[in-house]
Amino acid sequence: MEGAFILEKLILVVIIFTISLVIAMYSTLAERKIAGFMQDRYGPDRAGLFGLLQPLCDGGKFFFKEEIIPAGAHKPLFIIGPTLAIITACISSAVIPWGQNLTIGDRVVTLQVADINVGVLYIFGVIALGVYGVMIGGWASNNKFSLMGAIRAASQSISYEIGMGLSLIALLMVTGSLSIGDIVSQQSGFVNWNIWVQPLGFLIFMTCAFAECNRVPFDLPECETELIGGYHTEYSSMKLGLYMFSEYINMFVSSALMAALYFGGYNFPFMYDLGLSENWITIIGVLVFFAKIFAFIFFFMWIRWTLPRFRYDQLMKLGWKMLIPLAIANIVLTGIITIVKDTYFN
């Protein structure tokens, strides 16, 4: 491994890290703006043009707020909680392919930090870790509301991880690869997108992604009306900010994941028919990928301001009694279709 390679990856890591932080920052503004428009009002529009400076103001406010650690809290764990949440949120973007190869001089740069051949499993591992941040934070607060939120978060993410995994198995049966880079490059053009062969799988995956991100209608770990603030009831200042950031970064990453796995990632229709050079295809591909991500983020928010929160038993029922059987049926169906196609139509 030569130095230039490490440097190249390092630059890529920094860029992706910055992009995800900026997007998380502006997601907060977008969320409030979209909420505003959906409720026939403007949302924040005082700080800067269209309120564009609002996230900076909010961030500044977070830094200057008093930092409170409750007397009964377990101090080290109380600090580890948000740290873990933000770290797991940030590292999950490592295996996402942002674009194709970029040729600079005689170097070929892959726009993916790590194309590990078990990328899908890696994502799963990181997502499973993500709930530890919430759980540890909630437990360390020594507050019953926080504890309730933490317990809810844990059981919710365990339940929905199964549905998510099963829906992905059907996808993997179609693609035949665990590497996200391969999965995306298989979907070139428009008709090869996985959504056309796995619509049910996508629906299940998306529902589970909503639940994993603790977004409405699955935001029971936070649940202001019942649990005050859920797992972050006792958090203040930038620690609360970290939790919120990790939520928005999670949303960004799962949008990217959905776009990559089911909607062709950086692939766009007629990409090889326009007579563009490699580099241009890559650049447009990256832009297209981000457009898809933003569409998904918008969808996340759109759902949030449309649907009310589930009751806890409804949540469990949906997870265990509907999504998991559906996902299993989807696997069986995919298997049958694959075999039928292989034996009779080849």
């Binding site: 428009f37 959906m38 026939d40 009002r41 403007y42 759109w302 449309t306 649907l307």
Partner: peptide, 21 residues
């Protein structure tokens, strides 16, 4: 039902906003 709800919120997204600044 979800699709119906989404269409309602989207309709509001493009509505004229009565706010007076």
């Amino acid at each position: 039902a979800i699709a119906k709800g989404l269409s309602i919120t989207l309709k509001h997204f493009f509505k004229k906003i009565p706010t007076i600044k």
